[in-house]
Design a binder for these strands. Sequence first.
DNA 1: CTGGATCCCCTTGGATACTG
DNA 2: CAGTATCCAAGGGGATCCAG
Lengths: 149, 149
Amino acid sequence: MEESTFDAPSYCAGTEGEFDVANWDSRHDCDVRQILDRVADKWSLLVIALLERRSLRFTELKREIDGISQRMLTQTLRHLERDGLVRRTVYPVVPPRVDYDLTPLGASLHSTIKALVTWTEEHQREIAGARNQYDRRADDAALVAAARA
Amino acid sequence: MEESTFDAPSYCAGTEGEFDVANWDSRHDCDVRQILDRVADKWSLLVIALLERRSLRFTELKREIDGISQRMLTQTLRHLERDGLVRRTVYPVVPPRVDYDLTPLGASLHSTIKALVTWTEEHQREIAGARNQYDRRADDAALVAAARA
DNA sequence: CTGGATCCCCTTGGATACTG
DNA sequence: CAGTATCCAAGGGGATCCAG
């Protein structure tokens, strides 16, 4: 294994139910953060999205994702499997065949993620606009600074 | 600046509206991915969560977040500001005073994120269980391997 | 085909010191 | 107070080779 020893404090303060956003900071090393990191991961997202359509083999995933190294794909799949989001099925044949598909838990996560993606879709114009504005102002400021020197 | 030159291809294939999850892989370097990365960022989340309550000064944020370096805080705030999620207000006084607060866009993002956090809250038990199972099986496999040798 | 093991680069981010 | 500039260590991740 590579990063095996990080057993995580796992359970943090307060039982669930009394959750408060204001407490994110006091538990950034808890489950929430870890799951968020998993979801946030560049490759995890793509794997989950692809598996939501249908189950896929290792090579199929590698080919579809394009740009991912087999190292990262393996690692990503192991993580997702460990978290119970993806199921790994090995067929003892030669040549070896391994199928991956989403668990119900993984599927439910996917639909939650979609909300976030939808938000991004709906606001990408605003964000792009804000960036242009910001960059233009930054350029102006740089010009002024240069002129002063 | 440090990471200035990454102008992003920004606008990808297909106009919005005809969005399909199956296309995440063909546009992982687009706006969606970038926003996702921003949201996913360890510190961005905390900053947004804190600012959702009330506006804060630089030092207040640094104190509240605890563990963040001023370098990262500055960088995070700049990114959020550039994306139009956070507003930066400078009061020309001595000593300097700078306030940060969420824009309406930032606030709307926050409520979307909450759905994801809620999901995590609701399923952390399942995930923890899956992890335990996985780790136990991994340990068993290791033992068997050791015995064979 | 499905990975595990290695080498190695290069980015990320903490620590520290300096400015307006 | 609110940053900016530099230096530097740790880790992520690609490329490659090898095994079952």
